[in-house]
Design a protein around this nucleic acid. Structure first.
Lengths: 129, 129, 129, 129
DNA sequence: TTTT
DNA sequence: TTTT
């Protein structure tokens, strides 16, 4: 099964960093505004407002370096989950869990160039083809 | 801005084909179950249940050839929108708008191999690099 | 079949715009340097240098607005082809054909925000789910 | 920087498993034929033939379960490198390094459903939005 | 509840 | 042949 998302857009607000109550794991959430590449009937450019979740070390990097309006690239997957509202209704949520976040603003270049999430080490020995 | 999604998963139910009331455009919706590649604390394999929307010709192809349990590949983008519930509450929806759908079941090979959505013609003249 | 690529990186040189001799179609080529998110044994950050091809209107936009060092986002697919060298050897080439190119530099914001490649119009009537 | 590829296609030959001479790390290579969704001037359906590299545990899974003709999904990134030919010429190679490979054939369902590459554990506690 |  |  494959589930892969890539987004480039701007934060609609400052990111929110929290910690899970039991295990104290960092989790940051923000919404990315991704402009569509066409305009609607009113001649306005529409955008999609996509909820993004980041865990652990990357969560803290995002909280430190991203702000409202920051340009960010997100590489991750779609996650769905359901929860109960206080009055007992079931609600369904679709959001993006980021595996990598890139800081694409010029000022954040120093850090955007840094690795703060990686999928593992690489083998540099013996190229295959 | 970039907004790109690729999914491979199975339909949770038969797809639903409808037509827009004013302009009669075909639109098919279904939910893709995409198994995650890890198991949860209860040792079960979790899945994400991702709502997918397909428009026009591809909508009709999907309605004809996909069924509950069909394996499908979706290439598209995330769309968010809001609507009002009958009792006046605002709700936010995140779904995938498919630009290409691939039928990956062996029986549907004949049609899965067909083009039913393409991004435009190609130039075969004069290779560039 | 699915074949989807998303890249964000910097041009290694100015883009090259040419026209196909027979039909006069615009085609721009450039190489994107995409930094890897880890460092090699020598402690240097490696990069991949990925050849990109853009056709038609988007080709001319790229030639106008991108320069050596520009930050660009590319959404497209991998293409392979072979050709004969002057001395009769067969060579195989793998490159990315861009369907969308985003200009991510702050100065090019005005044009990077513009649509210069779009997959088709949208239906705004009748939301589906 | 972002570098993301998703492919679904069929193996052109049996995969080849080797081990790096110094560290004995498993590496499997194969070529994926990915049919394009349009036909060329001769009315044939073209395909791209994309070289894929898989490392470590996933390499051995691929060697065990994939064969010529197998349908596979690949999630990874583009890598470029250069090497010297025996007669001293420099050659440039562009290939896909797989981070996840999915076995999409019905018979391989039992294993295709299994996890053989994962980006790390998940936190199930405390949903974020 | 939305960004440039 | 490589970018910040």
């Amino acid at each position: 099964m494959i589930n892969r998302v890539v987004l480039v857009g701007r934060l609609t607000k400052d990111p929110e960093l929290r910690y899970t109550p039991n295990t104290g794991i960092a989790v940051t959430t923000f919404t990315l505004a991704v402009n569509r590449n066409y305009t609607n009937q009113q001649g306005e450019r529409d955008a999609d407002f996509i909820p993004v979740v980041v865990w652990r070390t990357a969560a803290e990097h995002c909280a430190n370096y991203l702000r409202k309006g920051s340009l960010a690239g997100v590489d991750g997957r779609i996650q769905t989950r359901s929860y109960e509202t206080p009055d007992g209704q079931k609600r369904y949520v679709t959001e993006v869990v980021a595996e990598n976040v890139r800081f694409l603003d010029p000022r954040s270049k120093s850090v955007g160039g840094e690795d703060f999430t990686s999928f593992g080490e690489e083998v540099n020995e013996d190229v295959p083809f």
